[in-house]
């Protein structure tokens, strides 16, 4: 077992050379590659963390925007509900007004028709009443109704005051018209001519006119004046009584109808 000094020195030098060679060709490149890879991985991790943070920020922003949109949506929905409710109230009010106006119109039409019907009824009643009265007068007094109405008219003229009669006589000079609701027979026309001449003066022109829609009776018309005897007054009382029987007011009262 010997130790050779030259070999020891040479081996030391060999070992140092080997250290340098391995450092140059093995440790250096390997550790450099490992270090570079480590830096890359660290950079990648850093980038990943950064992107994760950015993603988190984006998620938070998205959630905030979502919440804002939800709130806006709720506000719009509430506003839409209010507008719909307001529009509904408006349309309901318009419909109510239209219905009221329609009702008013219908009521007016109905009232008008009612009045017309009532008038027709009055006329019809007057017609039948007149017919009945005529028969009654004819049977009881042996005189026809037209003659009695004309007699009543002339009697009414006869009881006028002198001034009024003078005024009527003056007006009659322009022409007189005897309006009746029924056609006068020629005998009655002649009697009427005679009666007029007796009461207001001789040779007064008298014309006869027949109108079925006129008030039942006889009306003497002259310029600016008229003198009448009709059944209207009696028929009015009859109408009131009839209305009471039918349980309806005789006159039209819109306020009361509402």
């Amino acid at each position: 077992m010997q130790i050779d000094a030259f070999t020891v020195v040479a081996q030391i030098i060999n070992f140092l050379i080997l250290v340098w060679l391995l450092k140059r060709f093995l440790y250096g490149p390997i550790t450099q590659a490992m270090s570079t890879r480590q830096q890359k991985i660290a950079a990648a991790l850093h980038e990943a963390r950064k992107k994760a943070e950015q993603a988190e920020v984006a998620v938070r922003e998205y959630q905030t925007q979502r919440a804002e949109l939800d709130a806006q949506h709720e506000a719009w929905l509430e506003q839409a509900h209010q507008e719909v409710a307001a529009q509904r109230e408006l349309w309901l009010e318009q419909a109510r007004q239209e219905i009221d106006a329609q009702r008013e119109e219908w009521l007016a039409v109905w009232q008008r028709e009612r009045v017309e019907n009532q008038r027709a009824l009055q006329r019809e009643a007057a017609h039948y009443l007149t017919k009945a009265v005529r028969h009654a007068l004819h049977d009881l007094a042996d005189a026809d109704l037209e003659a009695r109405m004309l007699a009543s008219l002339w009697a009414k003229l006869r009881v006028l005051e002198a001034g009024e009669r003078a005024t009527l006589a003056q007006a009659a000079l322009g022409g007189c018209t005897l309006l009746t609701a029924f056609p006068l027979e020629s005998a009655l026309q002649q009697q009427s001519q005679v009666a007029l001449c007796e009461e207001l003066g001789a040779d007064l022109p008298l014309t006869f006119r027949h109108d079925p829609n006129a008030a039942f009776g006889a009306t003497l018309e002259m310029s600016g004046h008229r003198l009448a005897w009709t059944l209207d007054r009696y028929l009015d009382g009859f109408s009131e009584a009839l209305a009471q029987v039918l349980n309806t007011p005789a006159t039209v009262d819109h306020d009361a109808q509402r």
Binding site: L21, L22, A33, R37, K40, I41
Partner: peptide
Amino acid sequence: LAVLAWRMTRYLSDDT
């Protein structure tokens, strides 16, 4: 060792 080290570290990758 030197040749092996040189050959094996010629094409080192710093990727994964």
